[in-house]
Simulated scan of single mutants.
Amino acid sequence: MEILLSVLVPIYGVEKYIERCATSLFEQTLQDHIEFIFVNDCTKDNSVVKLLNLLKKYPHRISQVKLLEHSRNRGLAASRQTALNHATGDYVLTVDSDDWLELDACEELLNSVRETKCDILMFDYIADYKRKHIYCKQNVASNGIDCLKLLLAGKMHGGTCTKLIKKSLYLENRINYIEGLNMFEDISVVYRLFFCAQSVGYRKRAFYHYYQGNQNSYCTRLSITSQENMLQTIDMMDCYFRENNVSYEVWKYFDCFKVRVFILLIVASELSEDYKRYGTLLRKNLKGMSMPLSLRDRWVCILIKYMPWRFTYLIIRFLNNLKKIKLQLYN
């Protein structure tokens, strides 16, 4: 049977969520031309046991499921790449195992790419907290370069989970996830995918549920390794843009991206020495930066530029604590 869509799901430490995720996949209205590839990254909990027990309730899906096993824990990026390497579909969709899909997502998205033949199909998503659900509309352009600018400007979700992507776009341009880069692992491939994409489509509907309550995810805690991953991504992007002679306009958007990353690192900094390190990087990159920033980012830049280190650090810690309180209220 011809496989049109491969759904890629990494598994590690998600026994609380895997049944919800897998149920949304196995109950998809799309019955044929689909495969589900799960990658067990040596999870220490019962995630795989729960997945296999759930699969027994869907015997018609068993032949469509591949469960791949890592011999050692290799991280999220390696799990995504393992799944991608074994995908046989024309298009791939990444689903994180603490998230879930609308039940007609795969059928509707495949219908759209059949019509448009686009390299990347984007769609809206819902940020799901326990007590709040926020509809998130994507900003999309019709070509890859303009989408790259939107990504760098922070006006687009950077994950692969909100994009149906033609597998040949990965293969023909040698775009792979980088093992060990587990924070910004999606951005590290998405910016290259956009740079190489000829056409981008859009469905104005939220097909993806992006769960915000998993305290163990990479996005809810910025470890030292995660912070280094973010800086590593900036260096990789810089090299890639130089090698491919991107336009001056793309460079300006990249300046904006770097400033936003440094601000994120500053706001997340628990130690004053980290705050000073990222503040110094921010000051260097503010020179000549002409792209617009959000209101919050503009205030952080003003504080960093004109106020004493200690005072600014305390203000930003206060703002960060307010953000944590907000998340607790939502969850």
Rank of each mutant, 00 (worst) to 15 (best):
T220I: 14
S71P: 07
F194S: 01
I18C: 05
L264C: 14
L4G: 02
L231T: 08
N73Q: 15
I165N: 00
I178V: 07
R72N: 11
C301R: 10
Y170S: 05
K117I: 06
G13F: 02
Y313M: 01
Q138F: 00
Y278G: 07
F257V: 03
L5W: 04
C21I: 02
Y202Q: 09
L286H: 04
N321M: 14
F38N: 01
N176A: 07
L193D: 06
E115W: 13
K16P: 03
A127I: 09
L264P: 02
S63A: 12
S199D: 11
K50H: 09
L68S: 10
Q64C: 11
N53K: 12
T23A: 03
E69L: 08
F184I: 03
Q81F: 04
K66R: 14
D238L: 09
V48C: 11
N53Y: 09
R20V: 10
F123G: 07
I316H: 03
V250A: 13
L84A: 06
L4Q: 12
Y211F: 13
S188G: 01
C118V: 14
Q232M: 14
L327G: 02
V261I: 14
C21T: 09
T162G: 12
K163D: 09
M156S: 08
K117G: 12
S269H: 08
I165H: 00
V300I: 15
V261L: 03
D32R: 15
A206V: 00
S71Q: 13
D186I: 00
S188N: 06
L282C: 06
T116H: 01
T116N: 10
R283G: 10
Q227A: 12
E179M: 09
H86C: 06
F26H: 01
A268I: 04
I316V: 11
S217Y: 05
T94Y: 12
S142W: 06
G180Q: 04
C219E: 15
N176K: 11
C106R: 05
L181W: 07
S63R: 08
R192W: 08
T29F: 00
H60C: 10
P308Q: 04
K117Y: 13
Y211D: 09
L148Y: 05
K137A: 08
I34Y: 00
K326I: 13
E69C: 09
T312N: 06
H60I: 12
